[in-house]
């Protein structure tokens, strides 16, 4: 099946003086996909998003956006919208006036530009006529998203869109992004909130010091991950711990000092070993009441791939396992 790409970047480099912000970055975003961009501070996420929005020009590499090759001039092709480093809003204007001014800037009649519709989509109808000066960070994020939606984008680029959102606001934003993707709009978003990325994204790219350390589906990331810690609640914790200790590839983590619940313990294992442990528990008549990763696979992968200390920490138990 043929897949169209909204973004296709190859070997992108970008330097600011002596600082290499992006170093041979490859990125592919399929049409209708929500693609997450993850990385520690200074990894180059915002620079990459800025390139997609046409705020900067790459020093090297090849970049195609919505099928058009981006040249040496600033400005992305039509159909790209979004924001980096927070939405740009004018505090002296109301939410509606902010959107109306943007619509007029693009040559649309404010009455027919769909302002009410996008305000409704992001859940800001009730404060449409309030000045943006009094908006919380979450409301500003939603208004920024509404401003981007106003242009009916085919590629939406968002930098930390969930910052400051309360649960209701987050639900609004997730709903909007999911619907956009279903309608064929591609979304590239960066976030430090792994739960958001896992809930929204089908693929992620992890950046570290300007380089791509992983890019692909979330499932592949989980499969590629080293062993994770899992929280296990059973009907017989003592027997289950003994069984876990005897299962190859599974290590019981000694967390007695911090654990509150006696029925719960933590094991570290790769998924096949974990599957084997569950099977043994069931065979032994021990009910498994809860099994969940202590940190999400994405977060674990993020830490493993981007933090040298963490990588070392992750590596150590594996070595011990092998030696055991």
């Amino acid at each position: 099946m043929e897949r169209r790409h909204a973004v296709r970047a190859g070997g992108i480099t970008k330097c600011f003086g002596d600082v290499v912000a992006l170093d041979g970055v490859d990125l592919e975003v399929t049409q209708g996909q929500i693609h997450g961009l993850v990385g520690p501070n200074g990894a180059g996420k915002t620079t990459l998003l800025g390139l997609l929005l046409g705020l900067a020009v790459a020093d090297g590499g090849r970049l195609e956006i919505l099928g058009k090759q981006v040249g040496r001039a600033f400005a992305a092709p039509d159909g790209v919208a979004g924001f980096v480093d927070g939405p740009g809003l004018y505090p002296s204007l109301t939410a509606r006036q902010n959107l109306a001014a943007l619509a007029a800037l693009r040559g649309h009649d404010a009455r027919t530009a769909g302002i009410d519709d996008v305000l409704h989509q992001v859940g800001l109808t009730d404060v449409a006529d309030d000045r943006a000066r009094g908006f919380s960070l979450g409301m500003r994020q939603r208004l920024g998203l509404a401003a981007a939606l106003l242009t009916k984008p085919r590629l939406l680029v968002l930098d930390e869109p969930s910052n400051g959102l309360d649960p209701a606001g987050k639900r609004h934003v997730h709903r909007v992004l999911t619907r956009l993707a279903a309608d064929g709009t591609s979304v590239v978003l960066s976030s430090h909130r792994m739960d958001d990325l896992e809930a929204l994204c089908s693929e992620v790219t992890i950046l570290a010091t300007g380089r791509v350390v992983f890019s692909g589906p979330l499932g592949k990331l989980a499969a590629e991950s080293r062993e994770l810690e899992y929280r296990l609640r059973t009907s017989d914790a003592r027997a289950a711990r003994d069984l876990a200790a005897e299962t190859g590839g599974v290590r019981v983590v000694d967390d007695a000092g911090i654990r509150q619940d006696a029925e719960v313990f933590v094991v570290r294992a790769l998924i096949p070993a974990l599957d084997e442990l569950v099977a043994q528990l069931v065979r032994s008549g021990i009910a498994v009441r809860e099994l969940a990763p202590v940190v999400s696979p994405l977060e674990a992968a993020f830490l493993a791939l981007t933090e040298p200390d963490q990588q070392e920490h992750q590596r150590e138990p594996q070595h011990q396992e092998v030696g055991r």
Binding site: T30, E64, L105
Partner: peptide, 30 residues
């Protein structure tokens, strides 16, 4: 996987000075 054939550098549609001027006036007067 296939990419849509890339068109040659297509300049983005820019906002006219007149509309930008009006936008700036709105911001100033607000």
């Amino acid at each position: 996987s296939a990419t849509v054939v890339a068109e040659h550098v297509a300049p983005a549609r820019r906002v006219s000075v007149a509309r930008g001027y009006r936008f700036e006036l709105v911001k100033l007067v607000s």
